[in-house]
Design a protein around this nucleic acid. Structure first.
Lengths: 162, 162
DNA sequence: TATTGTTATACTCTATAACTATA
DNA sequence: TATAGTTATAGAGTATAACAATA
């Protein structure tokens, strides 16, 4: 006799479960890839002795490129509620990376800005992100990378317009 | 005079913030797309009067295709800790979608299986997922869709092997 | 001893509702 | 009255550590 097909219990033991239709679903494949990319992001920063999430990096870039923006504006750009943003800013502020300044023209709003220390940290973070990006894209040619980003953007715009 | 370039404060008001390098980063584009896809998934189910997360759908497919598997095996396949799985199963079990049976051969493990009601629900869920998938892929040709999934899979495998 | 499922605990991300200061 | 930021609160998702039952 040749090798017999694995029984379900054997497959379960080996971790090679039947995933059915999942690998053909775009939503599933995106989610799984996103998760792996996230893990490499975290590993890259941890190895460098830095602690930052992808969301925090995006936030810092936004504040850097749009200095003086308000919390509500930033929350909208990030796609989160303004109350959700509060503890996130608290943390980054307590790390000395950004400041909330009272706006002189509108006493209700905070003008957000990076501190000098925050700017320097962001430069370091940006180099780490470049390393991370190079690694996750290492299996792709430059043109494949462009195609991938273009197709993802199409899906993004499509899903947004519903 | 022609139209003057928008000042930072105007851009902030209009929500058209400068995102700097972010749109060229694969990690950022994946995350943003994943978020939009997630929202359409939720909206699709809500409109149909069903409540299910993408993760719960994946779990149900795994249990359906690998009936009798244990919680630890399932947790590994989902990439989460076995303790994380407990409240998720509690919820699905309290909804009558699956059962934990004591294994006759190993008193420590639970043999997981869908209930008849769970099987019927999964068939409904699968149709909703098909609708959702068709919609998020509506801007893509069939071949673009295949290319996209293939490239994402390359990134997934690449990021995993680090 | 080792493994399985569970509990206790904690942290992050997310939201809604209500409060305050300001406009 | 409307808006900005904050707080209180709640739920989901994640983890680690420790425990009882079983192997």
């Amino acid at each position: 006799m040749g090798r017999s097909p694995a029984k379900p219990s054997d497959r379960a033991r080996a971790g090679a479960l039947d995933r059915g239709l999942l690998p053909s679903l775009l939503g599933y494949v995106i989610r799984r890839t996103q998760s792996a990319v996230f893990e490499d992001f975290a590993a890259t920063f941890q190895k460098a002795g830095e602690a930052l999430s992808p969301g925090e990096f995006g936030l810092l870039v936004l504040v850097d490129r749009n200095a003086g923006l308000s919390q509500t504006t930033l929350a909208r750009a990030l796609g989160i509620d303004r109350s959700t943003l509060v503890p996130i800013l608290d943390r980054l502020q307590s790390r000395g990376l950004l400041v909330r300044r009272r706006s002189p023209t509108d006493g209700r709003t905070h003008a957000l800005a990076l501190t000098p220390q925050g700017s320097k940290a962001l430069a370091r973070f940006t180099r780490l992100v470049a390393t991370h990006e190079k690694r996750i894209a290492s299996g792709l040619s430059a043109s494949e990378m462009q195609v991938l980003i273009g197709l993802l953007d199409k899906v993004y715009r499509g899903a947004r317009s519903l």
